[in-house]
Every structure is written in structure tokens, then in C-alpha cells.
Simulated scan of single mutants.
Amino acid sequence: MKTQTRTSGSDAATLGLGSVLVGSLPAALLTDESPDRYTVEAVFTRRPDRDEVVQILDNQTRDALTRAGYPTVEITVSDRRLEIANTNLEELRDGLATVLAERLAAISDSVRAGRDEAAARSHDAAATEHLRAAAVVELAGSVAFHRSGESATATTLPRLDADEQAQIEEWNDDGGDARTSS
């Protein structure tokens, strides 16, 4: 029995639970030998990332389950499945599924907000670094190497006559540098 049953929907960005793995349920369900409580495996709507898994398994999730009236329910993450132990399908249907969906959405929002803040900090740091680098270039450009008593214009190249200009153009065509000859 490998059938999956769709239990809820959500958008692709927000982590949620999409279905119960029917094949993982006890074979004796809805019989006289049916266990009262068991583990239900539910498939995530997408693979949770590391930060989400940490929050799913943290004390805040445990506290949320307890506050909602499910103190004995235990959850673990196994790849793309949430294993919900010490529960049953009726308990999930009657409210636990909603509690889990809300907690997963809150975790997604929290992780997304943290990443957005980090991206904004990175963007701000890059903009600040760009301004700093531009200021360094401007400051370096303000340095003039000339002897004391010389004016800054004395360090500029003298005006070239037609023969010198022709020679420079020839060197430029050959890859030479006009400043190194004479």
C-alpha cells in the first residue's frame, strides 16, 4: 500500500505538509486490533533546508505542540518526511495537522526573514565598500609627484610637434609607449 493521500496545499516557497504516506500506517487500522496511537509519516511540500530542520526540531516547536494540547506528540525529520509519533489520523484531522502547518509556515517565514536581512546587510556592505574604493581611487588620483617649488602643471607632458605625434601613432600601432622614448 504505497498510496499517498493529499491533506493540504501551500505555495512552493512556504514549507508545508502535502500528504500522509498511507503505506507507512499500521496495517491494522480500522480493525479491532487498531492501535490508539502510532507514527504517521507526512511528506513535506518541498525539501526542508538545514535551518528549517533545526527549527522544526527545536524547543519552540515542542512548546507550540504542548500549548496546543499535544504534549505527547513527538516529531522528527527524515529526508522529505515529517514523522509524527504518538498520534493518530483522527487527532491530525481534528487539529494537529493545522498546528503543524502553522508552525511550518512560521518557520519558513522566520528563515526567509533571516535570509532577507542577511542579503540586505550584504548589499549594504557591498555599497559601502564600493564607495570606499571610489574614495581611495579619488584620493590616489589627487597625489602629484613633483619636486617642491614646481607647479602641478610642470609635470604634464609638453606639447608635441607633428613629427613626434606621427612617431607616437606609429608606436601605438606597434604597441609601443610614447612616454619611454625620445
Rank of each mutant, 00 (worst) to 15 (best):
M1L: 04
K2Q: 08
K2N: 07
K2R: 11
K2E: 07
Q4W: 06
Q4A: 06
T7K: 13
D11C: 14
D11Y: 12
A12Y: 10
L15C: 08
G16D: 07
S19D: 07
S19K: 05
V20M: 01
V20Q: 01
L21I: 04
V22M: 01
S24F: 08
S24W: 09
P26I: 10
A28W: 10
A28Q: 10
S34A: 00
S34L: 01
S34Y: 02
S34I: 00
V40G: 00
E41Y: 07
E41D: 11
F44L: 00
R46N: 03
R47M: 13
R47Y: 08
D49H: 07
R50L: 12
E52P: 05
E52S: 07
V54L: 11
Q55D: 12
Q55P: 02
L57M: 07
Q60I: 01
Q60N: 14
Q60A: 12
T61G: 11
T61E: 09
R62G: 10
R62T: 09
D63A: 11
T66K: 09
T66W: 08
T66N: 08
A68T: 04
V73D: 01
I75N: 00
I75L: 03
I75Q: 01
T76A: 08
T76V: 05
V77W: 02
R81N: 07
L82K: 03
E83H: 13
E83K: 14
E83N: 12
N86Y: 13
N86Q: 14
L96T: 01
V99Y: 01
L100Y: 02
L100R: 05
E102N: 14
R103E: 04
A105G: 11
I107R: 03
I107Q: 01
D109Q: 15
D109N: 15
V111T: 04
R112G: 09
A113P: 06
A113Y: 11
A113R: 06
G114L: 03
D116V: 08
E117R: 13
A120P: 11
R121T: 09
S122W: 15
D124S: 10
A125V: 02
A126L: 00
A126D: 14
T128N: 14
E129V: 00
R132F: 15
A134D: 10
V137F: 08
V137Q: 14
V137D: 15
L139A: 14
G141N: 06
V143E: 01
F145D: 13
F145S: 06
H146F: 06
H146L: 11
H146C: 03
E150A: 09
A152Q: 08
L157G: 04
L157A: 12
P158M: 05
P158Q: 02
L160Y: 06
L160E: 04
D161R: 00
A162K: 02
A162G: 03
A166V: 06
E169V: 14
E170W: 13
W171E: 06
D173W: 09
D174Q: 15
G175N: 07
G175V: 02
D177G: 12
D177V: 14
D177W: 15
T180Q: 10
T180R: 15
S181Y: 13
S181E: 15
S182I: 12
